[in-house]
Design a protein around this nucleic acid. Structure first.
Lengths: 228, 228, 228, 228
DNA sequence: GATGAATGAGAGTTCATTCAT
DNA sequence: GATGAATGAACTCTCATTCAT
């Protein structure tokens, strides 16, 4: 963990220029981010109702009071976590720039991205699962998320159209449902890994198994979109 | 299990000995079922932590004390609900008797069944989502569910083998992952319908939309298993 | 106050008639009244904001949870206390039956009653002072108190009219302001006794002093209403 | 006390060397007064316990830290407000110089002053009501207020004696109780206007109504002191 | 003289659970 | 088998106050 340095240290930094610039203890942004990070863990493992603000504050090495100072309430903190998680997911997707690739290649990349993102952010998966269980009432209220979506469909539509024109993607595919399926194949595997592993008595979350699943997801989608 | 005799029955037994043989009012069983039903609603909409014991008792038109009388604790009630829900899902699946059908036909039927079951039991979907968020610790502890699974894989394997032999299913398909995908395509659509509808600004849960999705799920899986 | 008798007490009373009737621990009404009484003390000495629910519960020998069980919140308990206090004050006034007396005699009795009531219920005085400081927002919201008032003015009017007709009360007196003055002379003496004593360096709350004040109040009002 | 020099002053000192002798901006005093004014509003509407330090600081457009810098604590600020309010009330009374008037005229003027002062300083009325509810523990501790009182009684006594000698004031009037009554008639009308208005369903605080009350107060007192 | 960040104690409130009948 | 009263622990949230700059 980074060592905290007070203003005292900073002043001495003026005299000794070799001193590395350090993060101060009284850093609003730092505290805020620590709270958000701790909250993400707590909410994603226990849900909104099951999460404890004391635990969040403690894990963030912050005072409980700070949580209310910055976020107002448990629910607003939850929403902040949700917005950040959902936002960064959409953001990552947007950065894919799939339009530069050939249609089938682009879709394959997308499926792989979906899988990798789920794998690397299982906390977000859990978070979204919890939010969906509650009817997504919080996400629906969020203004920040209103605009984030939508354009996705346009990208898929364009890819599908190009593929159809080129002759290597079959016509008549609904872009929304294709997108849902691409998500579903990876998301469900991670969101339900606990019950799935129990059900099949097979450690589905091992690296080897994950590699298998990744290929399977690509396979399913590519088979589906293939021109006959 | 001991036969329940209500106080009503007792009283009438005292005053009139020539009573009807045994008036099995079984309020006991009825109360128990009412509690389970109410608990399923409460747990599936609010999660384990968010659910309120008082609400469950009230919705079941039962006294709160009865809940403890029959189930011991909130957590045990939750487990009972989970077991019942998960059990009946597996039970329904077992009753499909798919081995009588041609392999491709059987799998198509299965996919459709998956979709229909999800649609008709969205409460169970939510319940499972919540349980998975918690790492499925309760379901893993359940003895009753140990045995329920497993045989599923055998059925799929048999179907796949038969199809391959017959030449209309491609070889090399992993039955576990096929099963997971069959589940994923329907489950995710329902479990995440709240965020999906918000994301796409399209009422994905309308009957027309559901019919579309059902066909899409079948299409995806059938394309995948098709022999080239 | 009626003595509560539980079924237990009743039963034992049947077998052993000499048994003293006992107060049961689990008596809803008793707990409720104890809470109200404790709350009256706490609210009247510290105000709504300064009062502590823990103290109220402890003084009532009840569990803090019971306070919420019966009253819902601190504010609602406060309102209940207020309604009870204000209600019993008005009730006592109504029972005076002053119309049976000669006009001047009636008004003299009323002034004396005002003084005596203030003296015997200084808690209520303090309670009302606090509520008035808050703009009486709680009392104004109370439905129960809507109807309690008003008729008072009619009584005074009748008395004044009779006195005027009889010739021993001067005409032209506003009954509302007379009532306010009758209240003010006693109420203020008690509500502000703390600052008054400090200001005059004279122990104004001694019995002797109170007797003096009582006579003074009567004197002032009687001088005012006297026909010239 | 150290002379305050604001940053504003400093800056202008830098740019214009030919400065005015000493530009005593005294933000210090201004901030202090702003805090007192804001505190008076907050304490008089919510009481000591109900008042919020943050609100006071915000309303004074000052930093919360300044409140502690100048007053040490919430309670000491409260005391400062009380002392100021009570002091200025007594001060105003002292400035009446009633000894120049004829006795009855002087008392009439005094009653009118009481009424007018209450009307113009209803905040102080509320403040005193709150303090009295708490047993006036703060005012009693205040050294500044020890000396303020007392002389009032001498003035009244002198007026009464003069009136009695002159033959137009009746003998035997207790000056303290007369003073209390003069206060009571106006104070109570304002301190309890909220409940009174509610009780009588009559907007007692309208200008017309206030004029009526003022005359009534004078009438009551003048009738009382009149020689028969 | 002024400020935003931080704090610990304690407030009101809620909850699963149990007691007495 | 059923009920209303009772409980204590724990939770979310608030507040006056102080630190570091």
């Amino acid at each position: 963990m980074a060592v905290a340095v007070t203003s005292k240290a900073k002043k001495s930094a003026l005299s000794a220029k070799a001193k590395a610039p350090l993060e101060p203890v009284r850093d609003a942004e730092r505290t805020k981010q620590a709270l958000l990070a701790a909250a993400e863990v707590e909410f994603s493992t226990k849900g909104l109702a099951g999460a404890r603000v004391d635990v969040i504050a403690e894990q963030a090495a912050a005072n409980k009071r700070m949580l209310y100072y910055y976020f107002g309430s448990k629910e607003e903190l939850y929403l902040a976590v949700l917005e950040r998680a959902y936002g960064s997911m959409r953001e990552a997707e947007r950065k894919l720039n799939l339009t530069d690739l050939a249609p089938r290649e682009a879709i394959k990349t997308w499926v792989e991205f979906k899988f990798d993102y789920c794998q690397q952010h299982q906390q977000i998966i859990a978070l979204l699962a919890g939010e969906n269980m509650l009817g997504a009432v919080h996400l629906k209220r969020s203004r920040r998320l209103r605009d984030m979506n939508m354009s996705l469909v346009d990208v898929i539509s364009a890819l599908l159209d190009a593929g159809v024109a080129k002759g290597d993607i079959r016509p008549g595919i609904d872009p929304v449902h294709l997108y849902i399926s691409m998500s579903a194949l990876s998301y469900f595997y991670f969101s339900n890994s606990a019950t799935l592993s129990a059900a099949f008595g097979r450690a589905l979350s091992s690296p080897a198994e994950q590699k298998l699943r990744r290929a399977h997801c690509v396979d399913v989608i590519m088979s589906y979109i293939a021109a006959r």
